[in-house]
Amino acid sequence: MSSSTISPPAAMEHSFDRLVERARPSKTDINFVIMDYLINEGYPSAAQKFAKEANIQPFADGEAIQERVDISSAIRSGDIQLAIERINELNPQLLDTDPHLHFSLLRLQLIELIRPIVSAPGPPSPTAFEPALEFATTQLAPRAPTSPAFLQDLERTMALLIFPPEKLTSQLKELLDLGLRQKIATTVNEAILHSQGERREARIRNLVRLRAWAEDKARQSDKDLNLPDKIELGLGSESPNNGAQDGDAMVA
């Protein structure tokens, strides 16, 4: 393997690279994909600057982006109550028609009530959990019987109250990971977009996956397509160690 990584002389450059060189994607397409991403995932200031700098139409009104950004931002900073209020202002039916989404928000709200107590040093006082317990009984417990998944999620969350923080299983630790906030924020953003008749995900995500998929298919092909061992994008993060990150872990 190691001997094959020596770069070939320029004259013998991979025919694949030459084909890629020749396929010149249009700037209009790329700019469209970038704008789509900035709007979909909520980067209003960048979207505004990009519309100006690239001289393209923003094709979405700033207010609509801002509403989603405010909601995502509230979730990321742990203010779930505010997020739920904002969602209801934006679309009163959204949470009613998506019980899973509603439940996952309420559960995150419960986790946010628990987080400061378990992350504080020393053993928590017995009364510290009262607000969390009350929230669980009034908000989550009535919903739990409607789905086995809800019940399991609630049980797991309540376990946070019982186990001392240093003895949490990795599954329980995940609940306290701030990454969960991002995950829920993403789900909410997608649900709002969908309810507005937009695509759930930015095209660039599908594009990145399509590239990895096409590479896999090409490598699985019987024909000798003479692909380079590693197809690079030329990004700083692409080092020999995390090549798998680039979706080309299928090298036989």
């Binding site: 694949f16 084909l19 890629v20 060189e21 396929a23 010149r24 994607p25 397409d29 790329i30 994909v33 970038i34 660039i204 594009l207 990145v208 399509l210 590239r211 096409a214 590479e215 298919k217 090409a218 092909s221 024909k223 397509l225 197809i231 994008l233 030329g234 990004l235």
Partner: peptide
Amino acid sequence: SAAIEKCVAQTEVLLDMVQANGGEA
């Protein structure tokens, strides 16, 4: 070209190769 442009160009070439084999691609 930037990495995203490369990404699109590579996808195009790879898809071409795969599609020559027919099938769902």
